[in-house]
Design a protein around this nucleic acid. Sequence first.
DNA 1: CTGTTAGCGCGTTCAC
DNA 2: GTGAACGCGCTAACAG
Lengths: 350, 350
Amino acid sequence: MTIATEKSDTPGRRRHRGEHRVTIEDVARQAGVAPITVSRALNTPDKVSLKFRKRIDLAVETLGYVPNLIAGGLASAGIRMIPVIVPSLSILTYIEVIHGIQQTLEASGYQVLLGSTDFNLERETALVDSVLGYSPSGVILTGLKHSDRTIRRLQSWGRPVVEMMELGEGGIDMNVGVDNTQVGATMARHLLERGYRRIAYLGTGMTHDYRAMQRYEGHHQILREAGVESERLFQHDEPSSYDIGRQLFLEAREACPELEALHFANDNLAAGAILEANRRGIRVPEDIAIGGYLGLSLSEHLTPRLTTVAVPRFEMGVAAARLLLMRLEEQASIATQLDIGHQLMVREST
Amino acid sequence: MTIATEKSDTPGRRRHRGEHRVTIEDVARQAGVAPITVSRALNTPDKVSLKFRKRIDLAVETLGYVPNLIAGGLASAGIRMIPVIVPSLSILTYIEVIHGIQQTLEASGYQVLLGSTDFNLERETALVDSVLGYSPSGVILTGLKHSDRTIRRLQSWGRPVVEMMELGEGGIDMNVGVDNTQVGATMARHLLERGYRRIAYLGTGMTHDYRAMQRYEGHHQILREAGVESERLFQHDEPSSYDIGRQLFLEAREACPELEALHFANDNLAAGAILEANRRGIRVPEDIAIGGYLGLSLSEHLTPRLTTVAVPRFEMGVAAARLLLMRLEEQASIATQLDIGHQLMVREST
DNA sequence: CTGTTAGCGCGTTCAC
DNA sequence: GTGAACGCGCTAACAG
């Protein structure tokens, strides 16, 4: 028998592992009120008289009471928590979006629960199933493609859901993001306008990251419409990095020495290429032009400064969180779909 | 009156907002067993006969049952969740550590709850108070300095706590990190060995980030012991960035043209400096040597490649999570303190 | 291996 | 403005 020996333990009460947490009942006793009054003093202070409020605050302080959020959650069918589900935590883009979300939600008293799927829809399904078990206030997930099960569950769930990063029809609920096809098209158009005709696209992870694929498709379509060779594509499957950018750069130059411009799937790759060009004395854009995507701060500090299509990633996170909060706070949610936009930053590398 | 009209609703039962979640009771009824058997089939399958397990699995599947983790948490006094509390989500270091933690914990079925303090101890205290309300399985926090309240609460809490990033005595429970003073000293020693004597330290956020200050102190002490001018310090209060690195570089050169080597507080700053040097045709290390800290992958791709003190950040996260898991799974926790180490990477910039 | 009973700590509901 | 009773959905403890 390992019954807890806490002095104030009500006899017969089950205690877990000898832990004695201060409960709302302890506070109530100390303050000479009913537990529910303590609850109200904490959650809706204006519904409690100043006299009691003071006594309760004092009791809370002396006892060091911390509300059991789990119990509160069970009773009120929900907790102030928002799961955020992203494909990867090693990709800076998602990190910056998470940062925006986290900062916004935490300021409103919500906690962020992190989940990552590795671009695997089954893992996403399992994750969503699991986190819904917490009865969170809402959910933020990445992209518009999900398993049928996830879509069904979330649609019938009745709480706010934001799908982010990508824009499109038929979303579950709310949607913030960019039009990836347009992003790819924008850079392709710019390259054509600059007079380049022999253009290649170089990227990573396009077999599992369909948003990366969409950007390539935007690029591809613009080139085709312009009547130039549009299928020059170099890709690796590893995650993007400076080193893969370097390799892609070298491979493309070797396979296709006549190339005039390189459209990289992101600034990391493009930076790797420029850094390698610097090292080898290859002139950019005279020998070969380079364009990127994202608008990483690094891109402004390279020589030459990188031309890129910038997307406000932190702000996208803030926007996703705001949409959710608007719903939660019952203000009318004006937009159910929000294009966060993208901007071509013409600099020196093209 | 908005009473739920679900057919199988027990009369008189209170329902929240018309939501009808499938409960363990529904599954039990469908499978013709007691609820506890369903619970066991899900949590400890080997304690349930195959016959029942099959029937239960089927019922779970057809009903689409998803366990209410909140209710389970209340009943069993804890949930599989680990709050991770860091100072900032805009600093890459913490992100990489979080990544390691998240990957490790998620693989063992734990969820990561994210909290950030902005280097503010009061916010940390409030956050810890708040997340303990979830009865999480353990907690990971940053650094060894906390409010008395936080330390007391966590010490008497009885569940595993890991303090990370920093190494030292008097921790709450377990501790993984690096010796920041040694990190600073290592680079300073290297610079001296290379023959540099006029050396400056350039950093950011040292007023609020005491770990940054510790690295400077390590640097300072080595220079003093060597009998060279040790108080050359340039600092900004904004967060580190390539641009601040660039500015610091320019300021130091202007204020002190005789400088031979610059010890930057991190690779971001150092990279900003090298990039600016590239642009201006300043030769590194011939005109001025540059050293960094962190071991960012970018540092290997710069020209010249950056000499830096590398710290395995991702691995530190993995290690923190592992320590926690070992405790949770009742394996003897061998080390209660773990030095994750640091490594001087001598490259071209010094 | 399976079931019964009794809460976990709180907030909702309804009465005062 | 305050309180009593009840139950949120699940699992620990104990018995069979």
